[in-house]
Design a binder for these strands. Sequence first.
RNA 1: GCCCAGGUGGUGGAAUUGGUAGACACGUUGGACUUAAAAUCCAAUGGCCAGCAAUGGCCGUGCGGGUUCAAGUCCCGCCCUGGGUACCA
Length: 928
Amino acid sequence: MDYNFRDIEPRWQEYWEKNQTFRAKNHSDKPKYYVLDMFPYPSGAGLHVGHPLGYIASDIYARYMRHRGFNVLHPMGYDAYGLPAEQYAIQTGTHPQVTTYKNIDRYREQLDKIGFSFDWSREVRTCDPQYYKWTQWTFIQLFHHWYDAGSGKAKPITSLIRLFETNGNAGINAACDTTEPFTAGEWEKMHEKQQQEILMHYRLAYLSDSWVNWCPALGTVLANDEVKDGFSERGGHPVERKLMKQWSLRITAYAQRLLDGLETVNWPESLKEVQRNWIGKSEGASVAFPVDGHPDKTLEVFTTRPDTLFGSTFMVLAPEHEWVKDITTEKHLQEVEKYIEWTKTRSERDRISDIKNISGVFTGAYGINPMNNKRIPVWIAEYVLAGYGTGAIMAVPAHDSRDFAFAKHFNLPVIQVVVGPNDEPSDPGTWEDSYDAKEGRMINSGFMNGMGVKKAIRESIQWLEEKGIGQGKVNFRLRDAIFSRQRYWGEPFPVYYKNGMPYTLDEKDLPLELPEVDTYLPTEAGEPPLARAKNWETSDGYPLETFTMPGFAGSSGYYYRYMDPRNDASYFSKEANEYWRDVDLYIGGDEHGTGHLIYARFWSMFLHDIKLACEPEPFKKLINQGKIQGRSSFVYRIKGTNTFVSFNLRKNYETIRQHADVALVHNDELDTEAFRNWQPGLKNAAFILEDGKYICGWEVEKMSKSKHNVVNPDELISQYGADTLRIYEMFLGPLEYHKPWDTQGVEGVFRFLKKLWRLYRNQQGNIQCSREEPTPAEWKILHTCIKKIREDIERFSFNTAVSAFMICVNELSELKCNKKKILEPLLILISPYAPHISEELWNALGHDNTIEFEPYPEHNATYLVESTVTYPVSFNGKLRFKLELPVDMPKEDIEKKVLAAPEAQKWTAGKTPEKIIIVPKKIINVVI
RNA sequence: GCCCAGGUGGUGGAAUUGGUAGACACGUUGGACUUAAAAUCCAAUGGCCAGCAAUGGCCGUGCGGGUUCAAGUCCCGCCCUGGGUACCA
């Protein structure tokens, strides 16, 4: 009987489903292991061959851990909210849920065919009210908590109110917006609305006017990680800055913990680095500059270099800075207003692409440098960002390249205050560029003169603190996460408005379900689509929030919900969480480094603070799988004709290169008949062939429809089977690498599986295994393989594991080994990789249980012991011949043997060797 | 600009701690089986040179240096490709 995967694979998939083989129990004596994939957004295009790469790797590991006796949690679900379904709804009127569920069904069908060991009973969909109930619930908790920076964790807002009632807001060390000081008495006298407004400055989920990334084409705001180079990541539409009332999450409160936590997780170093940069910690000082003629005003600046204060010759404010209008003098008002108007018309994109052009205007105001009491002009300029630090800087042109360029352009003074280690002071007027002095000694700096930079930084901060002008400060680049979207297809906020102030719904009213609307567009008044919903209000008649939550809301805590997915009374039970704790292995793409993986850690830390989650960090080990790229095929059309010339002849003509569908190309040879039928315009295509063939050019590109290089798993499965697909995806190369897909190579893996199949069968194709004792050679082949496979799987090197299987099967085939004692362990060994064929053969060998829980083989070193070693013998580092010697031969004897070898004479040429290096079991090197 | 990956045959890749570079596959070429095809099996396959041949020699892991008995691997200096980030004070 031939290897008939078409019969085998569906049968075992059915068996697993029927027997609930992969169902994970929340109570077990076994140790737990949680293997998670980043859940997919179900797109309309379905899965291509690149999507399952990570799923296959995690599935192999999950199955391996089951063999190792672990209780494995390996769930899957869908990140179901997303823009494509909504854009489609706007165009066609089809409810996004209809589209999404249809796509989910298609995904499920494709996933099932690959034979994953997912526990589907735990499936979650972020758009399912039973799921998003808990997303809404978490939002309510965030709203009712504040961050106590003193104890370093979130606390209930009620505890903050008690503090206000006893002491006002003095002495509260909270992560909050700047708030005027008030006493307990003042707090008591405030109206509810005033109190609510103040509390809003402290809540972890808060409503505020913030500068946001507004995307007019999508009609919504976007988070920083959803914007790339001034364009929306989804759809590529331009983005502009706008001041709007929005919900935000106070993720900045957790900046330091997000940074520290990275030290405790086993993630790729590059990904940790991406997160560190995104968090962007910088240490320095905040310094207060009085404004000349405005006794009530001091400009706060943040600087990492307080040591260079004596070199600060001007100040610059962001055009959006709140005091610009207050301090600008009559004479400069018009010019300043003109400049602000101009910057408003500039998109994020313009600013980024225009870095070289220096712009700015003088306000007419002067600040007082608090260190030397000198009056310095205050400018406004685009290069100072409103969103970072205080939106105001002290400019030190001598030692900052941007300040230097600005000073040169507007002819502002430059004073050198740091001299390089091997340098003399010089006239900054002659400089080409600033000296960005990370080390050196101070000059022109009063009490700091002669100090090194590091000491001067310490001393200057101390000086500022003593004088009460400033203090040491840590600043983060990380911004609070804008959490509202002006879209339909997302979680509704569990929020209503009373007297214009937001209040959260009662937990018992959750989930607040997404209402129906007549169309998915904003209203004529520019309100979000939810404003169209009928009766969008509480039972008391208070209007409900019309914003919805962003894409990352549902994905921030889904890994916790899998632990206890059908719990209706809580997010997940304490018991389930204490058993599963955290994700042991998380596999997904590195594009989530600054989005999902930061938000999820924040979410998890908060749930930890409120004692719901027992571990602060959700993902212990993380692997980024590489992308599978497409291998595009090209044909060469002779300009102005319908004639195509073969690849190697194309230079003789003037040609235009165009994509040909990879399905029409085999081994770079074009099926010209199929090509003619591909598109209407090609019916009469003519071809100039080489050696009777049309050869295509090729290139590695992104896999996409427009490049006609998409390969989907279904086609491959119907032709070769899921086991071949699984192994081939692993065989392609290291999991983390980006690598091109070449369907050609799949044959090799298919041959391998057929060879494996034949090992268990006689010439007639019937199962035939002997109970005979294996030979030492057979034992050695098996145990070499066991050792290699276990080492490889432990370091997630699946591609080399596949090679090891191939070597093992090749060698056993050569020996015509059909011994049960060899072939049974081999089957267990390979079953995580090729589960269907393994189950089939396991069953054929007379077992009526699944192979899934058989203990994984362990290697026995005694089978691997060698009596001789074949030494490569080098002379002066060059390999000359090989010599077989007993393993335990003493070095002196080896030396003699080597020099006595007939081949050695030629290389010693009668001379006495200077030295002979012998590395036991490795190499011999003779130095002449 | 800065940060992070990476550069090995015609192709994907292997070499885990400095110790036989090119495992395992694909592709290619030749052969066996077959009426034929598919399937399967066997052999060759980094480059150059010498030889009828077995064989032998030289070169070879992006480039240039260095350390070492020995370097794809370590050190110094460069080049190129891919990704991230971008006035972050």
